[in-house]
């Protein structure tokens, strides 16, 4: 009985998610169809990209709350560059991603090198990036000169498969290999679990934290660009919902696999997207899904606190 309870608690969040998904399958007409599946997958893409960056940051036990603003700023930069260059998708992409990397670099500099408190530093930078995003158009949308090549990134197909889906799978496969098979994976986890001991074990701790923030910025920016590509325009609030959903996805992954992993994140992104899509199809009031996602994040944090690999303040005095 005790064991059963423990099992139920450990997997409670996963079970709740599966129950909700099952509910949609049974109750919502047309939920079990290829069209719905494709919708779910396409809806999950931006969020799984942004959550991948968070996976890196959370594996070193740091927070990055600036990702939403980074996404907006990168999207605005990309569209602005396309607009003023008269439609150069390439220039836009390079510019947008470069800005994203710069955002990550600034966060990394503050947290890894200058040892600022991670949450405080990224709250400050999120405001900074958000303010900077206004510079291009004073807060208006940017939509002129968008070429099909730009729209292709999110909306194009390779045969019958959406291009962006293939891209996501490729990115995740590479990330997964880096986490499981390369030195950096061990470095990330050990830095997150006990940075001092990692330092004494010849892990370049500052560099590892810097890399995590760089990737967090890069993927946040890319997610923003994907959003812009989907709609053919960029607007200030584009990255608004990314923060909450991103964290929800990563923590759900941690609650399943005990530590931040790319696979766990991808799986959770799919589940969360399923729930969101289900709510839309069920025609319930739209903000209900925010409530549910918020509760899921709380629940996932509670469960993963019990068993996650990354946690602070390990040193509890031996009695």
């Amino acid at each position: 009985m005790k064991r059963l309870m423990a099992f139920l608690f450990k997997n409670s969040i996963l079970l709740i998610v599966l129950a909700v998904v099952l509910y949609f399958c049974l109750r919502v007409p047309g939920f079990l169809s290829i069209t719905t599946l494709k919708n779910i997958l396409m809806n999950s893409i931006a969020i799984s990209i942004i959550a991948l960056g968070l996976t890196f940051v959370l594996s070193v036990n740091k927070w990055d709350v600036s990702i939403g603003s980074t996404a907006s700023l990168s999207a605005m930069t990309t569209c602005y560059l396309i607009q003023v260059s008269g439609g150069s998708t390439f220039l836009g992409l390079v510019g947008g991603l470069a800005v994203a990397l710069l955002c990550g670099f600034l966060n990394g500099l503050l947290v890894a090198k200058l040892h600022f408190e991670d949450i405080v530093a990224t709250i400050a930078t999120q405001s900074l990036f958000f303010g900077l995003a206004f510079l291009y158009a004073g807060g208006y949308e940017i939509y002129k000169n968008m070429r099909p090549s730009f729209r292709f990134i999110f909306n194009g197909n390779l045969g019958v498969v959406p291009f962006v889906l293939v891209l996501t799978v490729v990115i995740y496969t590479i990330a997964d290999i880096f986490f499981r098979k390369k030195k950096i994976g061990r470095w990330l986890y050990s830095t997150g679990n006990n940075p001092r001991a990692a330092l004494f074990s010849a892990v370049p701790v500052e560099r590892v934290i810097m890399i995590a923030y760089l990737l967090s910025g890069l993927f946040a920016g890319f997610a923003g660009i994907l959003g812009a590509s989907e709609h053919g325009r960029a607007w200030i609030l584009l990255g608004q919902g990314y923060l909450l959903t991103g964290y929800c996805v990563v923590f759900l992954g941690i609650s399943i696999f005990e530590k931040p992993t790319p696979f766990g994140t991808l799986l959770s992104a799919f589940f969360i997207s399923t729930i969101r899509t289900g709510f839309v199809m069920e025609n319930v009031i739209y903000y209900l899904s925010d409530i549910v996602i918020g509760l899921l994040l709380l629940g996932a944090v509670v469960v993963s606190n019990e068993k996650k690999i990354v946690h602070q303040n390990y040193k509890v005095g031996e009695l």
Partner: peptide
């Protein structure tokens, strides 16, 4: 405890880290 072990990583991962 402070400088030696990475508590939640396995014996193997701890030993080969450096």
């Amino acid at each position: 405890l402070r400088d030696g072990i990475i508590p939640d990583l396995s014996i193997t991962w701890n030993m080969t880290l450096p």
